[in-house]
Design a binder for these strands. Structure first.
Lengths: 136, 136
DNA sequence: TGAAAACTCTATTAAATTAGTAGGGTAATA
DNA sequence: TATTACCCTACTAATTTAATAGAGTTTTCA
């Protein structure tokens, strides 16, 4: 299940990408328009800023804005930052790999075999979608 | 993230599918060989029996066995029973559909758009894999 | 026939994660 | 210099997951 954090983060990014100009947008504006708790959104935008997706401007007329153009922002990167691993089990994760403590051998594990395919198919989707692609 | 329930359920199914004959296999045997808590596995096998994947035989010499051949068991069905919805958000789920309370319009929602693709790609994988395909 | 083997079922619980809430602090701009 | 708006920490309620405990029932085989 997709976490609210990821869902809200994606919506906020899409909202910023849909702006006609690059002027900073206030948290409160995004929160209202996308029906998100303002405080919760605050923490999500903060993490997107720390990971290089967003810039912010303080003071009057301040807010958040995209640091890159929408077509430069890959869903792969966004998902990894917001949701974490794309794989459903750590033993098939590219960026968050861990061995299973129960499994004696990955190569003969049926779960591993299936989840490898699922990961690859999900990666395919994320790699083929930028922020620009998902705004309408 | 894949739940342990699903992981263990898949492993148990694969274990049964790998049996040379159709004799019932005891819970304890599966639990030991696959490093699964026996009591937890018990409840998982029970749910697989109630959903028509497994049959059971009581008493001495009893245990669980597959009701269908491995190539007749689609990963789509198994995943839906063990893990629940294949979609990451309810608004793109085929079997567990729900509207989002926050989203004003699904058709213009960027999250919806992306998650629809992810669901389809996952479904593709599950539809193309039977229990036979994932045992080695 | 009776005892052991093995499944069945209910209820409880511990741990982890998620989704927020509260509230004060700090920086920048008009 | 006051206001706006971001920044940060800590706490908490709710939910889900992963078991655990224990009693009960059915079946089979000796």
């Amino acid at each position: 299940m997709l976490s609210k954090k990821t869902k809200y983060g994606l919506k906020a990014l899409a909202y910023l990408a849909a702006q006609p100009d690059k002027k900073p947008v206030q948290i409160s504006e995004i929160a209202e328009n996308e029906n998100i708790s303002q405080k919760f959104l605050e923490s999500i935008l903060l993490s997107l800023r720390k990971t290089g997706f967003l810039g912010s401007k303080k003071g009057k007329g301040g807010g958040y804005y995209l640091l890159r153009t929408p077509e430069e922002i890959s869903m792969t990167d966004v998902m990894r930052v917001l949701e974490g691993p794309i794989a459903m089990v750590p033993c098939v994760s590219l960026n968050f790999y861990e061995t299973c403590d129960d499994c004696p051998d990955e190569h003969t594990c049926s779960v591993h075999k299936l989840m490898l395919q699922v990961r690859d198919s999900a990666l395919d989707v994320y790699r083929n979608n930028t922020l620009k692609d998902i705004i309408s």
